[in-house]
């Protein structure tokens, strides 16, 4: 296969996904609203005192992000599976992992990136001390690609089941634990005044590793699912 053909197919997949989601904007907005609502529940549950809220802010935002990733995961492959697109993608001469990477990238653009943009609002609502803001944003920026990639694996595995929801959280949430630990740990380190960059770097490394390997797992899962 020539390089231009690979490139052409990759951009076709990405353009198609972008165009489809841009026509259904609620798919982008709903997970964000979900995060916002979950975040605003916490002050009501544990009280609005800044000492408690500030301490749990990063953890709450990250847990909300994990849950919203699960919530929006179905749209990754569900429609494509139902209308036959997924089947056609597996029959493309181009490597399926490459096309899967394209889908992961679009998913991140439309769910991970908006989350980074929304994060300051959440941090404000939860009274996260200013010292932790930049670290929170950094962890979200490097951590959300992991979220998109791992979600894609789970969504591809369960796409033919039709009722993936609860099963998907069972499969994915344990795998998100390192992400949660390092991300909230980094913010905590920033709050107590120690260096947060080792954890952020670690997350960035994990992110790269995941983006490198996950497309192959997604491709294998798609092949199993269209069987």
């Amino acid at each position: 296969m020539t390089q231009p053909a690979n490139w052409s197919a990759l951009t076709a997949v990405m353009r198609r996904d972008l165009m489809v989601v841009m026509r259904r904007r609620s798919d982008i907005l709903n997970p964000l609203l979900f995060i916002l609502i979950v975040v605003s529940l916490f002050p009501l549950a544990v009280g609005p005192g800044p000492d408690i809220l500030g301490r749990i802010a990063a953890g709450v935002i990250w847990v909300a992000a994990l849950l919203s990733a699960l919530l929006g995961s179905e749209r990754l492959f569900r429609e494509d599976y139902l209308d036959g697109t997924l089947e056609q993608l597996t029959l493309q001469p181009q490597p399926l992992a490459l096309l899967a990477f394209g889908k992961i990238a679009v998913h991140w653009l439309l769910s991970g990136l908006p989350l980074v943009i929304l994060a300051p609002v959440c941090a404000l609502l939860l009274k996260l001390p200013i010292a932790g803001w930049s670290t929170l944003l950094a962890t979200l920026l490097v951590g959300t690609p992991i979220l998109s990639a791992m979600t894609a694996i789970g969504a591809a595995l369960t796409v033919s089941l039709g009722r993936g929801g609860a099963l998907l959280s069972l499969l994915l949430l344990p795998l998100f634990i390192p992400l949660l630990i390092f991300a909230s740990g980094a913010v905590e380190a920033a709050l107590v005044g120690t260096a947060a960059w080792p954890q952020v770097l670690l997350l960035a490394g994990l992110s790269l590793l995941t983006l490198l390997l996950a497309p192959f797992a997604v491709a294998a899962s798609i092949r199993v699912s269209v069987n």
């Binding site: 595995l157 369960t158 199993v224």
Partner: peptide, 15 residues
């Protein structure tokens, strides 16, 4: 989770 045993086995293997 799969009604087809063999598909289930393959999917679980990937996981």
């Amino acid at each position: 989770a799969f009604s087809d045993n063999r598909t289930g086995a393959k999917a679980a293997g990937i996981l």
